[in-house]
């Protein structure tokens, strides 16, 4: 029987120099999705972006006492959905409490979670027994 799903389980050193590698993997995945009828290059950019933002956050906030030297990313693609899960070991935060940026205030920071929420269909951040998990889902149609 033909297996249709793809699952990638990635552990990458928690250094920003690897953001481009993870972003490229995201772009390649977008180009491999058979049934996607939207603009593929836009999807590639969006997946690159959400992976880059989520991994940057995990590097910055998710490893307070250097207990892990890697960032763990799980990507799952089925016919209809793309799941991305990124694990961290930081204090965590309430994703629903992150405000929409004040577009007139011109802050240097604070746009990352907004971009993720704008580009994905579902975004949840959950505490787990050992750390936290950011789960992002995009419907593919």
């Amino acid at each position: 029987m033909e297996k249709r799903g793809i699952e990638l389980d990635i552990k990458v050193p928690n250094q920003t120099r690897y953001l481009s590698l993870i972003g490229r993997i995201g772009e390649d995945i977008a180009r491999e999705i058979d049934r996607y009828s939207g603009d593929r290059e836009t999807l590639a950019y969006q997946i690159n972006l959400v992976l880059t933002e989520a991994m940057s956050n995990a590097i910055k906030y998710g490893n307070p006492d250097n207990r892990e030297e890697t960032v763990h990313i799980l990507i799952n693609i089925s016919d209809n959905e793309l799941f991305i899960r990124i694990y961290d070991y930081g204090q965590g935060f309430d994703i629903n409490e992150i405000p929409t940026p004040d577009f007139d205030a011109l802050e240097d920071r604070g746009r990352g979670i907004f971009l993720i929420k704008a580009l994905m269909d579902s975004v949840q951040y959950r505490k787990q027994a050992d750390g936290n998990m950011l789960e992002m889902i995009k419907q593919l149609h």
Binding site: G23, L49, F114, L115
Partner: peptide, 16 residues
């Protein structure tokens, strides 16, 4: 070809 929130932030910082 690619910019993220921190790239945008660097340009905003320069603008300020």
């Amino acid at each position: 070809r690619f910019i993220d929130s921190s790239g945008l932030g660097a340009l905003v910082s320069g603008f300020k």
